[in-house]
Nucleic acid binder design. Structure first.
Lengths: 209, 209
DNA sequence: ACTTAATTTAAACAATTGTTTAAAACAATA
DNA sequence: TATTGTTTTAAACAATTGTTTAAATTAAGT
């Protein structure tokens, strides 16, 4: 399969899979090579070192990760709809790439790695105008006064964690993959309703204090 | 310090730290040995192998992890108060042991490990009577009809994720440790209010369907 | 066809891996 | 003190690690 790709692309694609599912320290150069059908020397011929290859992959994954998020923020929708849409999109993305949150969290907490800069992604989100939209809604008293960090945490906690904790919850409650999938679908609805009704209280509740 | 402990205890304590912060594949036998001031042979003398030592540590960590949770469920409180208390306790526990969620999630998703059974923990929780308490509250229409998996996910998502994502959020929003700590404290309140008001809607809202 | 450059290979490198050996140091008991 | 058994050590083991070498193969340009 995918023999139309160049050697370099094949290695990159295979390495991405391996790195995401086993982490940097969880795999070897030879495993990376074998996964793409190549040999060790070839991997280093194209990417210099395991670490260089990893940095490249990590960068790529991070961009994919924020891509769909930004696209939602850029859309022409009222804030409340953006949020609903965002949650929907996140669940869709994570259903396709359930291992990515663990990968990102893990590799970002490694102390021995060349620290990875994420400086460029926040400005991109700010430029979508979603912040002004939120401030506006808060001024009008439609939205609870929660800062950007709080909203971010609220949304991604409830989207990502159910995927992160799949092995834990499956093990704990003795669920099959299918059963867990059903729970996820159910949970998505709950989370959406809960977050929306928290951030946009039905009764026009001006923030006290 | 802690030279009053036996060699075996010293190794176990040091290994716990190392395993939790670097993971099984992220550390070496020699690192484990050095962390306790011993040598490699000594570690294997007491624990047979790196893997055996790991299994032991993992078991311990899991028990600690569920301990405080169970103690809350066993307490003599109305359900709503139990939940509030649980969130409070979780945040306290995680403030003390912020690396544990990542450790558990990571090691449980390793495919190459001897799979770890968690069969015993769920019955313990069931025996606290918290389930009956929930069913009761749901029958009386005080509580939204969400099953155990849903509630579990809701609570631990919002408690654990903020600790899991600390490096991500810190990096993204360029926050200091102190700033992040403040956000955590703020978030705890939000999460508590949000979950409670979602699960126990103020208006006696009988579940539609 | 000849030359040059790019790609791929097998083999080797030193360093590190988890684990074991066998001797030493220590403690307890007689 | 001599004799146990327990604990600790230094050294070694084969296997695997990330990386490099140098030769072989293929492709491209003339």
């Amino acid at each position: 399969m995918s023999s139309s790709l160049s050697t370099e692309e094949k290695i990159k694609a295979a390495a991405k899979q391996v790195f995401i599912s086993k982490g940097f320290s969880g795999c070897t150069s030879r495993e990376l090579a074998k996964a793409s059908g190549m040999n060790v020397a070839l991997v280093n011929y194209y990417f210099r070192s395991k670490n260089k290859l990893f940095q490249l992959i990590f960068q790529t994954v991070m961009e994919e990760f924020f891509e769909s998020m930004v696209s939602v923020f850029s859309s022409d929708l009222p804030l409340k709809e953006k949020l609903k849409f965002l949650i929907e999109r996140e669940y869709a993305f994570l259903t396709k790439h359930p291992e990515i949150p663990r990968f990102i969290i893990n590799e970002l907490s490694r102390k021995d790695t060349d620290l990875i800069e994420l400086t460029h992604v926040l400005p991109v989100i700010y430029n979508t105008g979603v912040i002004e939209q939120a401030i506006e809604a808060q001024k009008k008293g439609e939205m609870r006064r929660v800062d950007m960090v709080g909203i971010t945490l609220l949304v991604i906690s409830n989207c990502q964690y159910p995927f992160l904790a799949k092995p834990l919850i499956k093990n704990l409650h003795k669920l099959s993959d299918e059963q867990y999938q059903q729970h996820l679908e159910l949970h998505k609805g709950m989370v959406s309703e809960m977050i929306i009704s928290y951030l946009f209280p039905a009764a026009p509740k001006p923030n006290k204090k």
